[in-house]
Design a protein around this nucleic acid. Structure first.
Length: 272
DNA sequence: CTGTTAACCTGAGTGC
DNA sequence: TGCACTCAGGTTAACA
C-alpha cells in the first residue's frame, strides 16, 4: 500500500495525537508480522512517553522518553489508526497502543507484511536503516549522485529508482509517475541515462512525492490516513493504472510492461 | 558484485 | 453462488 507520501500522511496524522502522550498499555494480539513482534515489546513500551514520531523512507520511527525507539512499517496493507478506546475490533487488528489521552493507536494489517520492532537506545544504528539510500528531499539526493550511482548499471531505470539503496520512498506508483514527467521510458537501462536526464529525474521524483504528500497520498484500494481519510493524488496520475487509456498529454495509448514482476505503465510517445 | 525470481500473506476482482 | 485464478502500494532471501 504505502509509499513515502502515504507513510508521511500517516505520520502527520498521528503526530498531534501521540506527542508527549504516555503509552498506558500495549495489547498484542498477533505477533506474526513480517518479522515477529518482539515478545517483550508490550512490556518495554508500556508506561513510556512518546517524544517524537519521525520517518525514514517508508519506516515510521517512534522515539520514547527512555531513549528507546520503535520501528513501524506498514508493508503493503498496513494501517495505523487513531481511535477512541473501546472501538470495536475487526479482523486483522493485530496490536493496540493505549494512550493516556483515552485514545489508542491500532495497527491493522491483513497481509501482515508490516512490522513493529523494538530499537534499544544502546543500538546507535539499526540494521534495517543502515544501508538505506538518501531521502529524496535532502541535498544528498541530486543529479550528480544519481548519475554516478547509475553508471554501469543495466537494470531498468524504474527498478533502479525503486531500489531503497539508491533513494528511499519511490514505490511502484511514484516511480512510474516520476518517469512519465521526466519523459524517460521505464525500461531504459539506468546506466544509459545522461547527466541531464538524471538531474531531471531527481527533480521529478521530488515534485511527484511532494505533490502527493500535499494531497494526502494516493488512495487506490485501501490506503487511509491515521483518521481514516483518503488521499487525492490518484486524480493526478498520468500513467499508473491507466494502461489502454489515452495519454493525458499527447493522446497516445498508455502501454503496460512487466518489469521485475511489477506492472509498469508508460506513454510510448512522451517517454523515450 | 549485479540481476532475476520467488517468497512472505490475505482479500478483491474476474471469468466461467 | 461458488470455484479457480490473478493481482495488489514492499522488502528480503536465495539463486544464477
Amino acid at each position: 500500500m504505502p509509499e513515502l507520501p502515504e507513510v508521511e500522511t500517516v505520520r502527520r496524522g498521528l503526530e498531534p495525537h501521540v506527542l508527549q502522550r504516555r503509552i498506558t498499555r500495549v495489547l498484542l494480539r498477533e505477533p506474526r508480522l513480517r518479522w515477529p513482534v518482539p515478545e517483550a515489546l508490550p512490556r518495554l513500551a508500556a508506561k513510556r512517553r512518546i517524544e517524537a514520531i519521525g520517518r525514514r523512507g517508508k519506516y515510521l520511527l517512534v522515539t520514547l522518553d527512555s531513549g528507546d525507539r520503535m520501528i513501524w512499517h506498514l508493508g503493503m496493507s498496513g494501517r495505523m489508526f487513531v481511535l477512541e478506546r473501546g472501538h470495536p475490533l475487526v479482523k486483522h487488528d493485530h496490536l493496540d497502543f493505549e494512550l493516556d489521552s483515552g485514545q489508542l493507536l491500532r495497527f491493522h494489517d491483513p497481509r501482515r507484511f508490516g512490522a513493529v520492532l523494538w530499537w534499544p537506545r544502546e543500538e546507535t544504528e539499526h540494521v534495517l536503516l543502515r544501508a538505506m539510500g538518501p531521502e529524496p528531499f535532502t541535498p544528498a539526493f541530486n543529479g550528480e549522485y544519481l548519475f554516478e550511482k547509475s553508471r554501469g548499471r543495466s537494470v531498468a531505470v524504474k527498478n533502479f529508482i525503486m531500489d531503497g539503496h539508491i533513494v528511499v520512498g519511490a514505490g511502484n506508483i511514484y516511480a512510474a509517475e516520476s518517469l512519465f514527467r521526466a519523459g524517460i521510458r521505464p525500461t531504459r537501462a539506468a546506466g544509459k541515462l545522461t547527466r541531464a536526464q538524471c538531474q531531471l529525474l531527481v527533480e521529478k521524483i521530488r515534485e511527484v512525492l511532494g505533490e502527493a504528500v500535499e494531497l494526502g497520498g494516493t488512495t487506490l484500494r485501501d490506503f487511509a490516513g491515521a483518521r481514516g481519510e483518503s488521499g487525492y493524488f490518484q486524480q493526478e496520475l498520468f500513467v499508473y493504472g491507466r494502461e489502454g487509456q489515452s495519454c493525458r498529454v499527447c493522446g497516445s495509448t498508455i502501454k503496460l510492461e512487466v518489469l521485475g514482476a511489477r506492472q509498469s505503465c508508460y506513454c510510448p510517445r512522451c517517454q523515450r
